[in-house]
Each structure stands twice: as C-alpha cells, then as structure tokens.
C-alpha cells in the first residue's frame, strides 16, 4: 500500500531522523552560503549588518512590510520569536542558519518538517532572508525576562 510505504519512509528512528536532518541542513547551509557569496554583496550576509540604505528605491517600504510580517511568527514562537516551548525560539539565532532552514523548508528539503514548508511557501526567498535577518537581530529570550 502506498500509505504504508510513505509511513515507513517517514518513520525513521529519532536518531536517524536527527542525523538526516543535520546533514541536509548543513548541505543546504553550504549551498546558501555559496549562493549568497556569489549573488549578494558581502555586507548583506552579516547577521548584524545595517539595514539596507534608505535611499534604495522601495527599501523603506520593504522594511515596513517585513516588520509587520515578522509579527505573524509570534503566534507560534512568542513575541519577537523569543519563547522556548516545543517550538524553537527564533530571536538571536544566526541569520545564515535561519535563512538556510527557511529556504530548505520552502523547497521541501527538510525531512520530517510539519507546518513550516506549508508556511514558508507563502513568502518569497527575499522575504524569508529578510525575516531571518529580522529575528537574528532581536535579543534571545527578550520576552521571557521578568517584567518590571
């Protein structure tokens, strides 16, 4: 039966699953790093690089769009992506790793992934890269600190 095969394929042991995911993630990271190095100015690849200059046409509009878009993620990852639950936080993680993961989700290259491929396909590659930079710049655990 088809479903049986599918089930069998997805049901790797937890250890195997983690290794497969790590290898694919590292491979994807390599591809993304190479792609970014060849296609984009180096300044843009740094997680804490300054935002694109406001003089670039549409840059402010794009930044405003990303700012609102990023707030969507909070409904699963906590405000500013800083909450630790069964769902991992995003705040303060290296931009390059998040970019490679988001692009791998979008291309369905993350075995065992659940909702993220379905969500990542709702954004362009440029938007996903910008979202990764947005969360990389936020303080980790920012919203889990005790309030005054």
């Amino acid at each position: 039966m088809n479903t049986q095969n599918q089930t069998g394929k997805k049901r790797n042991g937890p250890d195997a699953g983690i290794w497969v995911r790590m290898v694919i993630m590292l491979a994807a990271l390599g591809v993304v790093v190479l792609t970014i190095r060849t296609l984009r100015p180096p300044a843009d690849t740094e997680p804490d690089s300054p935002p694109a200059p406001a003089t670039a046409p549409g840059a402010e509009e794009f930044a405003a769009k990303i700012e609102v878009m990023a707030q969507s993620c909070a409904a699963c990852h906590g405000t500013d992506g800083a909450l630790h639950t069964s769902i991992p936080p995003l705040a303060g993680k290296p931009a390059l790793i998040m970019q490679s993961q988001l692009l791998a989700f979008r291309e369905d290259q993350m075995p065992g992934a659940t909702v993220m491929p379905r969500l990542a396909r709702g954004y362009t590659e440029e938007e996903l890269r910008a979202l990764a930079r947005h969360f990389a710049e936020l303080p980790p655990g920012g919203t889990t600190r005790s309030t005054p």
């Binding site: 909070a74 409904a75 699963c76 906590g78 405000t79 909450l83 639950t85 769902i87 659940t114 909702v115």
Partner: peptide, 15 residues
C-alpha cells in the same frame, strides 16, 4: 504535531 499544538497554545497566550 500534538506537541507543537501545546507549544502553539503557550506561544499565542504569551503573545
């Protein structure tokens, strides 16, 4: 996905 459902609830209640 059952576990992520629990995580979702915690996150949206925090947010």
């Amino acid at each position: 996905e059952a576990e992520f459902g629990q995580g979702w609830y915690a996150a949206i209640a925090q947010d």
